[in-house]
């Protein structure tokens, strides 16, 4: 019965997402794409933060890797977005592999500082190698040419067309992350979060598993970056800045880092609130600071965790709840 309602719920959400693409105005479609792209970024990121228990300040670099990889291909080689995305995601993946190789030697604050250092190295390269990256101007003039698959060509030039492509990537990400969380690998990652020493004594290399989680999350960051560059028609150097890494963290925290849907819910809240607050005041950071304070001081399960807790409390009146996860 519970499973039935879950399917109904998923179907409703999907129908809603599709109808946004079909019927909504340009601005709503644009905002929805930003939500979806941020969700991809955060879903991947939370595999590292919520699952493995590692706080990275360097994932903006992988986002930028995706964006600049796509941008450079698009400007210098071919405008076919598919190749650009593949190169962008591949670049992010390789960067995550190399940077992760060094970073997973540490945990906690030292890991955070290492990722910060490597991320800022990437930022400084993007900032200073003007000939390649356009420096502070970024890469401009990325066009959304049709995706040509050889036998067919899918136009994404129009915002509403591109929306469906982004939606496809989002669904793909959700499905993959869902599978990973339920897999043996996902279980080992939560084991690392809980007690990394014990994982070693289960005969597993903590470093390798951490690295794998790092690379997976970095790769999704690259996908988000490539999609973001196509959306905005440019690659922005500040997308590599450490403060951009804070975005998936905030989003995961708002939604709830210990939940699967948290990063998605957080992205919706983040983008919408920011849009609404900016309508009324210049100071959305002030309000976000306050929201963040409230979450950290009192609502650490995030939105999803908080709602789940409400339900559980209701149910525990009926029967004593067992711990399941």
């Amino acid at each position: 019965m519970k499973r039935f309602w879950t399917y109904v719920f998923i179907a409703l959400i999907l129908a809603g997402l599709v109808s946004i693409g079909l019927f909504a105005g340009r601005f709503v479609v644009y905002l929805s794409m930003r939500v979806l792209i941020l969700s991809i970024f955060a879903l991947g990121y939370n595999l590292l933060l919520g699952r493995t228990g590692l706080l990275s300040f360097g994932h903006a670099a992988f986002y930028a890797g995706g964006a600049y990889g796509l941008g450079l291909i698009s400007i210098h080689v071919t405008t076919n977005p598919l190749l650009g995305i593949i190169v962008g995601v591949g670049l992010a993946c390789i960067m995550a592999l190399v940077i992760g190789f060094f970073c997973v030697r540490h945990t906690e604050i030292y890991f955070a500082m290492l990722t910060l250092a490597f991320g800022m190295m990437v930022f400084s390269l993007i900032w200073n190698l003007r000939e390649v990256t356009g420096g502070d101007d970024g890469l401009v003039g990325i066009v959304r040419a049709p995706i040509s698959l050889g036998f067919a060509s899918i136009p994404i030039t129009k915002t509403s067309h591109y929306y469906f492509f982004v939606l496809f990537c989002f669904i793909l990400t959700v499905a993959l992350i869902y599978l990973i969380r339920r897999s043996p690998f996902g279980l080992v990652l939560s084991g690392i979060r809980e007690n990394d020493r014990r994982i070693e004594f289960a005969g597993l290399s903590v470093r390798n598993y951490r690295l794998a989680a790092f690379v997976i999350s970095g790769t999704f960051a690259g996908l988000a970056g490539a999609l973001g560059a196509l959306l905005e028609s440019n690659a922005n150097p500040f997308s590599a800045h450490w403060s951009h890494s804070a975005e998936p963290i905030l989003v995961s925290l708002i939604g709830g880092i210990q939940t699967f849907t948290g990063p998605v819910v957080g992205s919706v809240v983040f983008i919408l609130l920011r849009e609404i607050i900016e309508r009324f005041t210049q100071n959305w950071m002030l309000w976000f600071g306050l929201i963040l304070l409230i979450i950290i001081m009192g609502l650490r399960g995030g939105v999803v965790g908080g709602v789940a807790q409400l339900f559980r409390r209701k149910r525990s009146h009926v029967a004593k709840s067992g711990g399941n996860r």
Binding site: L55, G289, L290, I296
Partner: peptide, 16 residues
């Protein structure tokens, strides 16, 4: 993460 993010929240707050 909570400790770092709490101090980060104050960064946002004070900046604005």
């Amino acid at each position: 993460p909570y400790q770092l993010l709490l101090t980060f929240a104050f960064v946002l707050l004070f900046d604005d």
